[in-house]
């Protein structure tokens, strides 16, 4: 049974005619459940475009994407409700945590399952379970402004995981953190990926965390190539 996320021949063109610009060229990618891969490349290489395509935020021009058992894109979206696809099948972790400032930690995490129709109590219980796994359960009632940067990022990871998506897209999740906290975030992502059988794609520039990936996709001028990473062991917390 196919799991994780598989991409074949994905391309994205902006504009048309003389002004057309091919941002992604025949991108192939495969991330298995429980795996954390790095996506690295210089500015303007197409990282964000690829992330937006994977996140169903923009429309790829051509190619095929499989998420879990479902073909979600095959030279056109195969899913009618992209909003529901993003809510139920894709977890997002951003460069900054972007927590909703007027919701407490629990509700920030529980919001997604609630939006998906889960009863409030059940959603909050699931949120608390994740917060416990990420060791921030003691801040469950705190507001985002009362958290440290590391705690905020862990809450953001919990929000990304709460709907048990087959894939998590992490956009520079360690950028604002020092090396100790950055390594902690990567360790958490690895643990969660294994625990919840989730495929994690981490877009990063961060030299500190690149050696931790087993596999890395380099992207330059919209073209990706895969190479083995160092897979350096992560020290325990």
């Amino acid at each position: 049974m196919a799991k994780g996320i598989h991409i074949e021949g994905l391309s994205k063109r902006y504009g048309s005619g003389d002004t057309a610009f091919l941002a992604l060229k025949d991108v192939n990618m495969r991330v298995e459940p429980g795996e954390v891969v790095g996506l690295i490349g210089p500015s303007g290489s197409g990282k964000s475009t690829l992330l937006k395509c994977l996140g169903a935020v923009i429309d790829p021009t051509a190619g095929r994407m499989t998420l879990g058992d479902d073909v979600i894109f095959d030279n056109g979206w195969k899913v009618r409700d992209l909003r529901a696809l993003r809510r139920d099948k894709i977890g997002f972790v951003f460069q900054a945590p972007y927590l909703i400032p007027f919701l407490d930690v629990t509700d920030n995490v529980a919001l997604l399952p609630m939006l998906a129709g889960m009863p409030d109590a059940q959603a909050r219980a699931r949120a608390l379970e994740l917060l416990t796994a990420l060791d921030v359960q003691h801040r469950a009632k705190a507001m985002p402004s009362q958290l440290s940067g590391g705690e905020q990022q862990r809450v953001a990871i919990a929000r990304g995981l709460v709907n048990r998506p087959p894939v998590i897209l992490a956009d520079e999740p360690t950028a604002p953190l020092d090396s100790v906290r950055a390594m902690a975030v990567i360790r958490i992502l690895n643990e969660m990926a294994k625990r919840f059988e989730t495929a994690v794609i981490v877009v990063t520039h961060d030299e500190k965390i690149i050696p931790t990936f087993q596999r890395i996709y380099h992207i330059r001028d919209g073209v990706t190539h895969e190479e083995a990473g160092e897979g350096r062991a992560l020290s325990p917390p």
Binding site: V57, A84, L85, R86, R87, Y98, I100, L112, L115
Partner: peptide
């Protein structure tokens, strides 16, 4: 604006 973008990204309906 940023919170609204995040809400839309994570699947919040327009009517919400």
């Amino acid at each position: 604006i940023r919170e609204i973008a995040v809400l839309k990204l994570i699947g919040t309906r327009n009517r919400t």
